[in-house]
């Protein structure tokens, strides 16, 4: 049975990347606990709009955990604490208790400047992807699926890496603001497949160079990234990226 809960929400307000920003606070009354976290924020915004106040800005899109658009740092954890690997849109109010104080902050990282409130600019990830996160193929008729044989284990692992939705929770959780889990997953999804091998060295070098250029930090293997990743990406990917990168540089 759904029950209603009342709690205090502290949410971050910031007018732009240069603004200092501050918290605002509001009591939320009788919210059904089967409400999703984003629906709860919709309720908050309806209340604010009815009172003639400016609504709270946050990113969201598909609301089914596959687009990677939602990005809230809830009570000290990116996407909130779910233990199962879920994005903010898959977080439900039943995870919270009556009387809780819920603190909502944006991803805080120099490479992700705040656009407004909790909406941050994650186009740095797009730039890294554009630097080498693809394979160069001739267009034309699709090839037969079995023309290149791929061991099931490799195909599965590449698919696991490809499930990274680029939400940026890894960067948000990392005390170093490092993007290694994202970059390593994107490098791995190709490195594990024969189609990705011809450009593997070039890809690892180009994506790491872009990552460094955009101001992400150096990985110190704290594992905070894999602990919060909504798609459960493993730091084994980071070891693979290190391997690919070192091998590529030694072969230069």
């Amino acid at each position: 049975m759904a029950k209603n809960i009342s709690f205090t929400i502290k949410y971050w307000k910031q007018n732009g990347p240069k603004d200092a920003g501050h918290f605002e606070q509001r009591e939320m009354k009788d919210i059904p606990d089967d409400t999703s976290f984003l629906e709860m924020l919709d309720i908050l915004n309806e209340e604010l709009i009815e009172e003639g106040k400016e609504p709270f800005v946050f990113d969201h899109d598909c609301r089914e955990g596959i687009c990677g658009m939602c990005s809230l740092y809830i009570n000290g954890t990116p996407h909130g604490k779910t233990e199962t690997g879920a994005t903010t849109c898959q977080l439900y109010m039943r995870r919270f208790n009556d009387g809780d104080v819920i603190t909502v902050e944006p991803w805080r990282s120099a490479a992700f400047p705040v656009i407004k409130d909790c909406m941050v600019d994650r186009s740095a990830f797009d730039k890294i992807q554009q630097a080498g996160g693809y394979i160069t193929v001739r267009t034309g008729a699709p090839q037969d699926a079995n023309a290149i044989l791929i061991p099931k284990q490799n195909a599965d692992e590449a698919m696991d890496c490809a499930t990274c939705i680029g939400c940026g929770a890894c960067v948000a959780a990392c005390k170093n603001g490092s993007a290694m889990l994202f970059v390593s997953s994107k490098v791995s999804q190709f490195a594990l497949l024969p189609q990705g091998r011809p450009e593997a060295a070039k890809r690892a070098k180009a994506m790491v160079a872009k990552m460094d250029e955009l101001g992400f930090g150096n990985c110190t293997n704290t594992r905070a990234c894999e602990a919060v990743c909504p798609k459960n990406e493993s730091i084994a990917n980071i070891a693979r990226l290190n391997r690919e990168f070192i091998k590529a540089k030694l072969n230069d």
Partner: peptide, 24 residues
């Protein structure tokens, strides 16, 4: 790494169980 983290610090942080104190 401090520069990459940015000048704004989180108000609330929660260290996941997997993350060992020494590593941070």
């Amino acid at each position: 790494n401090r520069k990459a983290r940015g000048s704004n610090r989180y108000a609330v942080t929660d260290r996941p169980e997997k993350v060992e104190w020494a590593s941070q």
